[in-house]
Amino acid sequence: MNNDEPLGGDVNAVLSIAEERKKEMRDNWSARLTSLAETRDKAVFASLFDYFAPRLKAYITRLGMPPATAEEVAQEAMLSVWRKAHMFNAEKASASTWIFTLARNLCIDRMRREKAVEYELPEEEPDPEQRDQGEHLILEERMRDAIATLPENQAQVLHLSYYEGKSHSEIADQLGIPLGSVKSRLRLAFSKLKAHWGEEE
């Protein structure tokens, strides 16, 4: 919890207002991305760029790309956001999850130096429990909070896997632990995070 949280008064009310505001913020990213597809409004794109491009650059850098490449791929990823905005579906993912997958795919292509090919998945059957846009945002918010509460050794393997793109074997070598321990830590982390995901149902 932040140290600058006001003391006294109704702390819970203050917290829930802060939560609401954070949620609205993120609500905006998914809503803005959806509207970008419809309006092709460059001001909307610029606001998405301001928020996501520096995060993408940080992510790509941690994946091990040299700084100049990270800069270039971050810009390329934002161009993909512009090009592919019509493919974003707020019922399936939040804006940051969708943008994460775009950047991840670009990085994989870079590393393999191969022509980018995407395998389009079959259209899903209409899901009676389809989540609406707001739900994804709440879930993501919860997931972020839950990540912060993971034990250090689980957070560590999560970061090495997602931020640094290390394989299970590479993580095992780096930490000097058996492959099985890497996987069981990841599984434990996933099941904790999934518990938050499932709470809505």
Partner: peptide, 9 residues
């Protein structure tokens, strides 16, 4: 993938 989205954010 949502874990990746949360980590990116």
């Amino acid at each position: 993938e949502a874990i990746g989205g949360a980590l990116l954010a």
